[in-house]
Nucleic acid binder design. Sequence first.
DNA 1: CTGGCGTGTTAACGCAATGTGAATCAACTC
DNA 2: GAGTTGATTCACATTGCGTTAACACGCCAG
Lengths: 232, 232
Amino acid sequence: MDSNETFLVFPDPAPPDLVRCLDLGGYRWKTAAGAEAVRNGNGNDSGETWTGAIVAADTQPEAAWALCRELRRGDVATEPLLVLISGAQLDELTSADDLFDDFIITPFHPRELEARLKHLLWRAGRGARPEVVNYGPIELNLETYQAMIDGRPLDLTYMEYELLRFLTANPGRVFTRETLLNRVWGYEYYGGARTVDVHVRRLRAKLGEEHANLIQTVRSVGYKLGQSRWKE
Amino acid sequence: MDSNETFLVFPDPAPPDLVRCLDLGGYRWKTAAGAEAVRNGNGNDSGETWTGAIVAADTQPEAAWALCRELRRGDVATEPLLVLISGAQLDELTSADDLFDDFIITPFHPRELEARLKHLLWRAGRGARPEVVNYGPIELNLETYQAMIDGRPLDLTYMEYELLRFLTANPGRVFTRETLLNRVWGYEYYGGARTVDVHVRRLRAKLGEEHANLIQTVRSVGYKLGQSRWKE
DNA sequence: CTGGCGTGTTAACGCAATGTGAATCAACTC
DNA sequence: GAGTTGATTCACATTGCGTTAACACGCCAG
């Protein structure tokens, strides 16, 4: 907790008990209003390097998860990510494993929070997140936003890349259109389910004829990537 | 059975609430007496591969930490390591960061334990627990929506999959057509009972000749899956 | 302003999945 | 063995769902 170690805290008026606990522990912290604010580099004027993030998801769940997704996008270095949730939100975690490193249930004991922070920081000392995701012929570089298939570069639009990234990160899993809209587009997004269809179609077109079947549709459920290429 | 997904649990008479929680979640587990017992390969007779370890350190702290140290020695593959501690033991964690992956404070909420286990398993790169249902030669992957029989993939339609899933989840129990219509099709659904017959028939056909009798008809009652294969 | 470009929406189309009815078959009763 | 009930099978209609193309909006660069 020396010098430049600052935590990103959400929401903007930080929860009082969280504030007290952090101050008592000697941690430096700064609040962030939301995902957009972080994307535009608020609060941290210079290099946008945080020690970690503490996101309270018990009051404004959608905004909180949106922030987590933004942080995990990789633009901002926020290695350990701790979320605060209420006990009733435990089910929300099941499909969001990749959005946090640890969680704590509110109301929390100050010393549990401190212990989790310490453990997270210790673990961050020697843990690297993969900067490249690949499945089969697909290879996604998370830093350069470049997608390759069979070593040949693809030029995807932003949404196409995000969709492909999400599917590739969870190969084999089936996602409903609604889930995709939530996880890829954003929790606050309200739109028609056909949006997903169209983007899947465009993705398939760009993947080429031979690889179009990488994205498989599970009828009346949703879409999934890969798995079971051997079926006619 | 699928692979050796078994948790190592300490101490030997495992805490009752932990036992209940694990059993309810469908996890396999086995107790270990202590560090020496693990070193000598007790409990796990064969290859000594565990899915993870859950060490309760609130009753016998010294023995528990000794076990953690032994597990972390590397001889036994025990990747995710979860410790249970009392609130008063939080300071003990400060100098033991390398001995555990996550911790939970007793008394704990069962759903918090399950959430932490799932997250740990996810982080370890393996699939989480309750995503696969199987009975006999049938194996249903709930997140891939894939059905396998004898390791060979089946391609089922949505309703066929849902019906098989429901029956497999409650093997041996007889369900009336009406119950099936309610539980599988939907509570608001009102349709002819022949619908169930036809879907059962299609399922049997896809299961193949040898496994068609997995779905048995109980005359003037309904259908059930498995149990009593000796009836030919 | 104007032209591309990325994105979301709408509607038409085609097909497979589902449900229904009738005919056939098997099982139990008397 | 006849009669009755229930289960199986088949064929066919229809609905529902995914695909596809075309369009509309907003954004930014030129």
